[in-house]
Design a protein around this nucleic acid. Structure first.
Lengths: 130, 130
DNA sequence: GTCAATTTGCAAATCATTCGCAAATTAATA
DNA sequence: TATTAATTTGCGAATGATTTGCAAATTGAC
């Protein structure tokens, strides 16, 4: 009975892997045209994150409130900056994992499982159209 | 009519500034012995964050769910690592603001307002008591 | 003190997320 | 390919942190 990466979970994974920006459970639901139940999407995203097939972070934004977003796993690690005006995400390169690892190793007796980093600000076009 | 930093908000600020770890609205409420209404604490924390007197991040943890935590503003900037087993936070030094600024400046046309960074892992004593 | 503006307490509402359970699907086996 | 036990799914209801509406209390300016 090892039937874990089911068809529906594969569809969810494809959606995440096909997106250049982080997606919420509701986003995935909409992109799948509601062919998959929302609760199933939540469970699928949990499963995929637990399997380390996707990554996620929870952000509080003025328009959406507190929502968890998921994005594809890449190497080097992706991070995002969120525009406070138009509420879009842009990826940026430059993962700091190694520096963080060194910091922690020298300062604290922890084993690191994940690091969450995102920025907020105002994107170029919102700056200009202000 | 500029009566913004009221006594209750000052009490909230004192609680945050007096803590070495991030606190949720509920934590502040408990520490104030429920002398201040929970809704007032939520509003106070919003106000203080908007005034850049405190900082915050929203984290999803297996025990508490998605909760927003607030912590004191320091220079250099504080960040935290969260133990997935005992659910405590530990501060660590080594803010990456400057490196991030340089990254963004060279890659994207954004102005950065804030950066959220936290780590998750397992702390030393939980590693050993496993 | 008076007054207009702001803040607070209370209870109800909100909303992303989770959960219970029966039906459907899956994978292993005969 | 039928059987079966385990897992997953859909649906609706529940959860729980956070927000909101409104009347009462507090604030700062005069």
């Amino acid at each position: 009975m090892i039937c874990k990466l089911t068809k529906k979970r594969q569809r969810i994974l494809s959606i995440i892997n096909g997106s250049s920006v982080p997606l919420s459970a509701g986003d995935v639901h909409a992109l799948l045209k509601k062919a998959v139940n929302l609760a199933t999407i939540y469970r699928g995203l949990h499963y995929l994150e637990l399997q380390h097939r996707i990554e996620g972070f929870t952000i509080l934004c003025t328009r959406e409130g507190a929502v968890r977003y998921y994005f594809k796993k890449e190497n080097p690690h992706l991070h995002f900056i969120h525009c406070e005006v138009c509420h879009t995400f842009s990826p940026f390169r430059g993962c700091l994992r190694e520096k963080l690892m060194n910091k922690i190793a020298s300062e604290l007796d922890y084993s690191i499982h994940s690091h969450v980093l995102y920025l907020t600000g105002v994107c170029g076009s919102c700056k200009r159209s202000n």
